[in-house]
Amino acid sequence: MIAGLYRAGDSPLHRMAAGWKLLALLVAGTLVFLVESPFAALAALLAVLVLYRLAGFGLRLAMAQLRPVAIVLAILFLAQLWLASPAVAALFVTRLAALVLAAALVTLTTRTSDLVDAIERGLAPLSRLGVDVAKVSLSLSLAIRFIPAVGQIAAEIREAQIARGQRPNPLTLVAPLIVRLLKMADEIAEAIDARS
């Protein structure tokens, strides 16, 4: 089982049901896109930072959430500055930063398993439209279990190639890896069908 991005804690945000957090994020995300003033966007950003505090997280963790988008945000800021005005540039970048931070906060305070449960519950009404919720659940739990296994097989193939004196490259690794996975698929499917 691979570790998710969840950070354990006991704050009101951690205790809140996953479904409500997702709904709140959706509403907040829509509202923040209706904001037209950079000051309102800044207020939204500060409000999200207060929520980080409430969740027991420091400013440093909040900043770490922005790092992956920092370059794109910087480029967007410069493009807006050049094409529009400083106010518009500030509005767009502040708004996006607030949204990214809010979304990351849901991830940080919600266990992967709770989010998976929320999705499965959310899908239940769709079963009348032909969505096979049991198969969706099966594919989710299988994939979570397969992730470390596939990484392990990839490492084995790479080691075997190095031992034979081959220099592994993406192609000589990917094709045998996929053939191994396809062969596995038949065995796993038979085992699942035999048990049900």
């Binding site: 198969k135 594919s139 996975l181 499917a189 069908d193």
Partner: peptide, 16 residues
């Protein structure tokens, strides 16, 4: 079931 397994395996391949 085999289709579900293939779908899950290729999602795991993406992770690898």
């Amino acid at each position: 079931t085999r289709d579900v397994v293939l779908v899950a395996l290729f999602a795991a391949l993406m992770a690898a």
